[in-house]
């Protein structure tokens, strides 16, 4: 509920249209992940819905990992960016279901990860590939397939640590979930 909705009328509420939704999407394209600042929240596929309700903009997001410390930061960044773009009291709602999957990372997002030196998730997130864990990850530096996993968990929950046996560079791999 927006502040002031109980007794007084919501002075800042107005009706929205297609152009507002489009503008909101444009703004969201510029809200970056704090830990991987080259991919936007749109690239990550965590924005599930943008709509107009009760005079204000509503954005529905889903967290990447249950304990991801960036979740709240991202929600605040989204709210701030939309506010700055002229939306009054934009609302950011969290939705758990369906759970986020790396399959939702856009093609652009994958390319940006790779250019940044992070290998994008390989394959689909189906249960079998998760359990067996057999994946061939391409080195983002030299493109070699001859890589090995150093550690299941990397600098953040969403990455694991790999090493390229061709160019010998270590790199992060964005895990498939």
């Amino acid at each position: 509920m927006q502040a002031g909705e109980l007794i007084t009328t919501d002075q800042q509420g107005r009706s929205g249209n297609e152009a507002d939704i489009q503008l909101a999407y444009d703004v969201l394209e510029e809200v970056m992940d704090p830990e991987v600042p080259v991919v936007s929240v749109m690239d990550l596929g965590i924005v599930r819905d943008v709509s107009w309700a009760n005079g204000h903009l509503n954005v529905v997001v889903t967290p990447t990992y249950s304990g991801c410390p960036a979740t709240e930061y991202i929600e605040t960044s989204i709210r701030d960016a939309l506010h700055e773009a002229g939306f009054s009291h934009p609302k950011v709602l969290q939705r758990l279901d369906p759970a986020w999957t790396t399959d939702w990372i856009t093609e652009q997002g994958r390319n940006r990860l790779k250019a940044y030196g992070i290998a994008p998730p390989v394959g689909s997130s189906n249960k079998r590939s998760l359990l067996s864990g057999v994946t061939q990850v391409e080195c983002p530096n030299c493109g070699s397939d001859d890589t090995e996993q150093l550690s299941e968990f990397g600098s953040t929950a969403c990455k694991s640590l790999y090493r390229c046996k061709s160019c010998l560079e270590p790199f992060d791999y964005f895990k498939c979930i």
């Binding site: 967290p63 990992y65 249950s66 279901d97 369906p98 759970a99 997130s125 299941e152 895990k175 979930i177």
Partner: peptide, 14 residues
Amino acid sequence: AAKSLKEVTYHLRR
């Protein structure tokens, strides 16, 4: 549960 299971699958593998 569905959300947690994705994470726990990795935990169990490790």
